[in-house]
């Protein structure tokens, strides 16, 4: 079979639609993951409840110690068994969120460690406490310090979202499979898919460099 670029070009409009779904799923999953991980980070720091620390450690090691694909299948197939009718999109985003959060928690732990204890002291001495102390002083500095690994995690999530094709979510990978299973030109179609994934990740890491430069002065 000869390589024919026109199959790539013909596939592009549908691939782009798939890429849009990939971006949506990634964005929603990452925002949820970041929120969950932030909540867990603050809880871990603010509460010295031992069982909570243990539970978090167990959660992190389970997530990191098993394949994401298994986690996706598990949530997709288990949810109806336990009476949750959530459909593939919700299940997929839930799996990505729970998976990514375990990594983001560790990223934020590192970012938080870089905030000097004097920052807590100065805020406390001014009368800030609880949500204000965290929201106005500590978390902004934690996020600023965590930008590079967070951007990296975002691209990880974006790439991992291809696994959602296995539970019938019509994102970029799934669209690509659908096209080449009909036209029997996997090489041409996958080339387009490959390029679109790369462009998305490339754009993300480039914009990260811009964010980095903007935040440079705020690191102190």
């Amino acid at each position: 079979m000869k390589f024919d670029i026109s199959y790539t070009i013909d596939a592009l409009p549908r691939l782009l639609e798939g890429a849009l779904v990939t971006l949506q799923v990634t964005l929603v999953g990452f925002v949820l993951s970041l929120s969950l991980a932030t909540a867990l980070t603050v809880m871990r720091e603010a509460n010295n409840v031992r069982w909570a620390h243990r539970a978090l450690a167990v959660y992190i090691s389970f997530i990191r110690g098993t394949p994401l694909l298994v986690q996706i299948f598990l949530i997709y197939y288990v949810s109806p068994v336990i009476g949750l009718d959530i459909g593939p999109y919700t299940a997929g985003i839930l799996a990505i969120t729970l998976n990514s959060a375990a990594f983001v928690v560790e990223i934020l732990r590192g970012g938080l460690a870089s905030v000097p204890s004097g920052q807590f002291e100065a805020a406390s001495a001014l009368g800030l406490k609880g949500p204000a102390l965290w929201g106005k002083v500590i978390l902004p500095q934690t996020f600023i310090a965590s930008v590079p690994p967070l951007v990296n995690e975002f691209t990880q999530v974006l790439k991992a979202s291809a696994l959602l094709s296995t539970i019938t979510i019509v994102e970029l990978m799934r669209v690509s499979q659908q096209i080449f299973s009909r036209n029997y030109h996997p090489v041409e179609v996958l080339l387009g898919t490959f390029i679109l994934y790369f462009l998305m990740c490339f754009a993300v890491s480039r914009s990260a460099a811009l964010i980095e430069a903007k935040l440079e002065l705020r690191r102190g």
Binding site: P116, G118, E121, I144, G220
Partner: peptide
């Protein structure tokens, strides 16, 4: 404080 502890992000 000795170390100032001004907030670098503001």
């Amino acid at each position: 404080f000795q170390q100032f502890n001004v907030w670098p992000h503001l």
